[in-house]
Nucleic acid binder design. Structure first.
Lengths: 255, 255
DNA sequence: TCCTGTGAAGATATTCACAGCC
DNA sequence: GGCTGTGAATATCTTCACAGGA
């Protein structure tokens, strides 16, 4: 399995940290909003606030892309939108297939943000023959039997799995065999894929469990200074809680 | 905002790293599967494979919880399930409300994994009067007007936002004001919350964009050794791609 | 003067490698 | 001998703090 990796000799210096890549979409969204309001330039401070990160981090992130700002001024919104889009590969169109058109699959198919930025739902696939031909979000559902053909005909390299957990690995294997090299997995299972295939997962119950952990922690500490919290529970405009993290995900709490 | 942080004096040593917390649900799921198959014990190696992480990481993670294994043997499955559940706060029931019962909200309400582990859908809330009273997943949808009452009557501290982006912040503010201190946000917006409130987000388009980035990178490198890839695109059982990142979320695979 | 770009420091996270117990 | 638990080494990420250009 994936060992070290001295990484390719070519391209060189193409080393954008993963953590930075994960934030680029956030910046892009904030910038797009500014662009729609015809804001011409933005400072790292302002943009960072809009994206919910701290400004030093944002500047460092951008520094991996190049020197796109102007000292004393800030960043040109349109220019940055373009640069980030290009970096993320959104200047081309990515055909995507969604496999598993249940409640969730249908919700994903209907999700507008899909088409908005570089992605296009090329096909919906489900194992239920009853669904075949029925349109969901204006796209007719096709049967799993044709999965390989669909992938190839459309040149799909990104697949979304929204099947029940039990079917996910099998669907994944077929997608990969047919040429898909990036998978977004909504099924609550760990997928095994060959090297070179990327998998990202979205998992509701994992997220809830992480929240529960922190929630429990808060409850435990409440014992210290209980007063405030109780009073709040009524209907203040914005109250609750004592302090806490502000960082990335959740986290910790100060003194 | 929020500066340094010398952290609380009390509780002490309750310092489970965030990265570890994020993996506990993964281990728990793998352990639950083993438990259902009545497997009595498991080694760090086996469990790590099932959870898709490396064994040293898993052992280190468990070491933060305590010494729950037996040298030369492994971990007792049932015991670990209990310990992790307790650590995550899943031994108690968390009532959850879902706000925004569109396609996605309905999908979430129908999601089985919800109830399975410590979470209970206490109420569904939507701003559309047409929906009020209609049952979704067997639960009648209630109107947003009653949000505060619902939160309080049910002692809800975890809220799920599945509204359109435009409504999310407003809903969030009301949830927080009513006493919710953990929010899972599916709307594609950055939410602003007071200190002490945890927010986690799930964002389809961000995930897709991250995949697109890596996908693009693969395409670029293909130029080097093109041969193999092309041949594969047909229908090999498991092929495609050269290497690529295997970092964070993506899966990796055993040899 | 304002704000970017970035070395250097600090904090977290991962991995190695082995001592210690069964 | 097998496998856990964990210091120590490494890698990655974040934050500070300030030099330097507009």
């Amino acid at each position: 399995m994936a060992t070290g990796r001295t990484h390719r000799p070519a391209t060189r210096s193409r080393g954008i940290p993963e953590a930075t890549v994960a934030r680029l979409p956030l910046y892009l969204r904030a910038l797009t909003a500014l662009s729609e309001r015809s804001v011409p330039t933005v400072s790292s401070e302002e943009l960072a606030a809009a994206a919910g990160v701290n400004s030093a981090k944002l500047r460092k992130d951008f520094s991996y892309l190049g020197s796109y700002g102007t000292r004393g001024v800030g960043y040109d919104v349109e220019y940055l939108v373009y640069q980030i889009s290009r970096e993320l590969g959104l200047t081309q169109d990515w055909p995507v297939v969604i496999v598993g058109i249940g409640n969730l699959g249908a919700a994903l198919a209907n999700y507008g943000g899909f088409a908005s930025r570089g992605f296009r739902v090329a096909a919906l696939i489900d194992a239920d023959p009853q669904l075949a031909g029925k349109p969901v979000a204006g796209i007719p559902v096709q049967h799993t039997d044709d999965l390989e053909r669909i992938i190839q005909d459309n040149g799909v390299s990104i697949g979304v799995i929204a099947t029940p957990a039990g079917a996910a690995q099998q669907v994944c294997d077929r997608l990969v065999a047919a040429g898909v090299t990036s998978i977004l997995n909504f099924a609550p299972t760990v997928l095994t894929v060959p090297d070179g295939v990327d998998v990202r997962k979205v998992d509701l119950s994992i997220e809830l469990q992480i929240l529960a952990f922190h929630e429990q922690r808060k409850a435990g500490e409440e014992s210290a200074a209980t007063a405030a919290a109780a009073a709040v529970t009524a209907s203040g405009t914005e109250a609750a809680a004592d302090q806490g993290p502000d960082g990335d995900v959740p986290a910790v709490m100060p003194a």
